[in-house]
Each structure stands twice: as C-alpha cells, then as structure tokens.
Amino acid sequence: MIFNLSYQMTLAFNAPVRNHQFMLRLLPRLASGIVVQSQQLMVTGEHDAGRFYDGFSNRLICGQAIEAHRDFRVSYQAKLKRGTPAKQSSDMLTAVYLAPSKLTQCDAKRLSSWLELPSIYENSMTLAQALSHLVYQRMTYSAGTTHTEHTVSELIDNPVGVCQDYAHLLIALLRYYLIPARYVAGIAQGEGQSHAWVEAWIDGYWLGLDPTHDCLVHEDDPYIAFAVGRDFSDCPLNSGAFSGNATHTLTIQANLTPSS
C-alpha cells in the first residue's frame, strides 16, 4: 500500500529568537517497515543538519537555526510504501519494553482494582485487543485537559485525556500482563495532526493497536510511525532550546492519504 504524506510543523515565537538548537523525530521510521519512494524535507535555517538514529532506531534530525527568526518551520512531502516490518533481529531486547517507564509507572494493585481486568483469555492477541477496548471504554477524550508529562497514576484518578494518555494506559496494562509494549508517535489519516498509538510484542511481531479509535493497526492502514519508545518521553517529535525571551506555539498540520 502506498501513501502520500505531507505535513507542516510550525513553531511560532512571539519575539525573535536566535541560536535555536533543535532535535526532531519527524521522519518516517524505516525500521517500522516504511519504504520511502520519494521525499522532500525543508527545515528553517538548516544548512546541513545531522541525521542520526537514536537507540530505538528512530530517525533524528539535529541542527541549529543561528540567525534571528520568529518562525521555525519543518515541511515534508513524501510518497511512502508500507510493508510488513521485518521480523526484529532484536538488537535491543524487547524486554526493555516490559519495565515500567517514567510515564506509565503505576501501582499494579491500583491498576487491577480500578479496572475489571480479564483473567481468562484465549491468547495474547485477543487479550491485547480486549485491553485496548477497555482503555477506549474507560477513557474520555478531551483535548487540552492534560499535559505531556501526565502519568498513568494520574489517569487512574481522572481518566480523561488525548491519544497520548490512551496509549500510556494501554502500555501499562499490556506490561501488567508481561506483554512488551511500546509507544508510537506519528501521523494517522484523518487526525490532521500528530497521533500516538501502541505496539505490543506478540508472537515475534509488533502488533499495532490504536486505543483512541478502538482498532487494530494493520500494515495497510494509514498510519506512519516517526518514533517509538518506552513512553512519550522517549519520542518527542520536537525538542529545542534557543536564546531569546519568547514563548511559542506549536502547530502540526498533516495530511495522509492512500495513493491511487
């Protein structure tokens, strides 16, 4: 299946900034089985930014916009093919996705007494789907109510949030059942902005689950991963530091469509 992806990310500052150092995770994650057929990337002030992979095989764009600017833009257009991800050679052990992480940490007893967790299930696959459905049912979607450092412990008190919170709760549940689970940040069709979902390591493959939309993510579905990690804190799409007394607003406008 071939997709057209375009996005524009804009950081708008209310005053000029200089020496803007940035690190972006805004390129399709090749390790997730994405093949780039053609692409065009433009980054403000970039002369020859560094391209690296982080430890999760996410692609990084590192660079700096030295001159004074009020807008920082990243625009991207690509034709991408999604195929079956290669069976992991497992260079980083999947057990890294079993340990509780910063944002998914919560007391197991609290988690199990809060939700009616299944005790009998056919197999890991059906269990993962049941857990994803449970998250979808128990959470209430509400934009702007949570911040990016929101933890699963806080979600138990107040199960309201956005896709990131849905993903964190599902990750905590999967790990509770000793299923390695990871956070995925990227773009999904119809979202118009960035999206977050989950992958569970089942029978030697990463199974995609989108608890916000209560569905599985199949390889033909319009989801393009940019970064994976133990939770959100491992895969921010944009990190930066600059000189100048300014605040900024971040917008991402994305469009993902199957190509004819």
Binding site: D54, A95, V96
Partner: peptide, 29 residues
C-alpha cells in the same frame, strides 16, 4: 549499549538493566 549478550546469556536478568533509570536506551548503538 550494543549486543546485550550478557543478558541474552542469562547472566544478568533483564530487569536489573531495563528497570534501572540509569540505563539510557536512547543511546543504544
């Protein structure tokens, strides 16, 4: 930070590495 052979060989349980805040998987490799 590369092959993690000592874990695969069963000499150190994965919990002791991956459960530690000091382990920085972002710099794996």
């Amino acid at each position: 930070y590369s092959e993690q052979k000592i874990i695969k060989a069963g000499i150190i349980p994965p919990d002791f590495v991956f459960g530690s805040k000091a382990y920085l998987p972002a710099f794996h490799g």
